[in-house]
Computed example of a mutant assay.
Amino acid sequence: MLELVFLLFLGFAASIFGSIVGLGGGIIIVPSLILLGSRLTGEEIDHPVAVGTSLAVLIVTALASTLSYTKKKRVDYRSGWLLFITSGPAAMIGSALTGHLHNGVFQLIFGIFMLLMAGLLVARDHLKPITRQWPIRRTYTDEEGHVHTYGYAILPALMIGFCVGMVSGLFGIGGGSLFVPVMVLLFRFPPHVATATSMFVIFLSSILGSGVHAALGEINLWIVLALIPGAWFGGRIGARIASKMTGKGLMWLLRLTLILLSSELIIEGFTKL
């Protein structure tokens, strides 16, 4: 009973945070299942199962967040569908590769990736978004009436979609840690639009990625069912919280989280090598 309560809380907390920063919550679920698996199920949870389980829960989290963001008209569906063209298949490839990474190596690579993303976000204040005029231009009017202009080209967008999809399937984190900073720095997306659109793409990619993990027997269905209720409500609440945060606050929350979790994963990875 205590284990069930913990899983409900884990799904709720991870989804709230994941929705706020556009990660989808997997960045909390995957390490938690790996570190606490023996206490929850009586035996250790291998990282492929943790990743597959996380992706399955991300479907619910990302759907709840996307619906909430849609009410605020912050999801750029046209851009999201374009990114999904490559992120979807790449998520399937990444999911198939997860099981080939040994314990220790997985945590180390995961941690280094998170640290690189954190470094990119820390440097963001000292970097200016690219001023290039992209061939495809989009506009977004925020609640205060300010008009934001951003854009992209199809080929770079497809390449980024592929990289993010690979990360999503391989690590089970949704890929928002890469999507959001790249969309903000390279394409000048407003942070709130980047977060909302990221959640939409995560929703689509998670369906394909978790399908591969399910076919490989790398999903713990009972844990998924325990996490889903909290994930649904947490995803919706997180989207509402994010709607009230400033873009600057959103980015600082993402930076601090990535630094803390990347440090923990790198240390754990070295101890298991």
Rank of each mutant, 00 (worst) to 15 (best):
A50C: 02
T66P: 01
T61D: 13
V57Y: 11
L67R: 11
G52F: 04
Y69G: 08
S65I: 06
P48V: 01
H47Q: 12
S68C: 15
D76K: 00
S79A: 15
G80I: 04
Y69V: 05
T66A: 09
T53P: 04
W81P: 01
I59R: 10
L67H: 03
L63H: 02
T61L: 05
T66N: 02
A50K: 00
D76I: 00
A64D: 01
V51I: 11
Y77K: 04
I59A: 10
T53H: 03
S54E: 02
W81V: 10
A64S: 14
K72T: 04
S68E: 15
L58R: 03
R78M: 10
K71D: 12
H47A: 08
V51G: 06
R78Q: 13
S79P: 13
L55Y: 06
K72V: 00
G52Y: 04
L67E: 01
G52D: 07
S79L: 15
T53V: 02
Y77E: 06
T61Y: 05
S65F: 08
K73Q: 14
L63F: 14
A56F: 13
D76T: 01
S65P: 09
G80E: 06
A62C: 12
R74F: 06
A50F: 00
V75T: 11
Y69S: 03
V51A: 09
R74W: 04
L63N: 01
R78P: 06
S79W: 15
S54C: 07
V51L: 06
H47K: 12
L58Y: 04
R74C: 14
T70V: 09
L58T: 03
Y77N: 03
H47C: 08
A56L: 06
T66H: 02
L55Q: 08
V60L: 07
R74H: 14
S68K: 15
R78V: 11
P48L: 04
K71C: 07
S65N: 06
A56M: 10
A62N: 10
K72I: 03
A62M: 08
I59L: 11
A50Q: 00
T53Q: 10
L55P: 07
G52V: 05
W81S: 05
R78Y: 09
S68N: 15
V51S: 09
P48E: 01
H47W: 09
Y69M: 11
A50N: 02
D76P: 00
L55V: 08
T66K: 01
K71G: 15
S79V: 12
L63E: 02
S54Y: 11
A64P: 01
T61N: 10
H47L: 14
S68V: 15
V49A: 13
V60C: 14
S68Y: 15
V49I: 12
Y77A: 03
Y77H: 04
P48G: 01
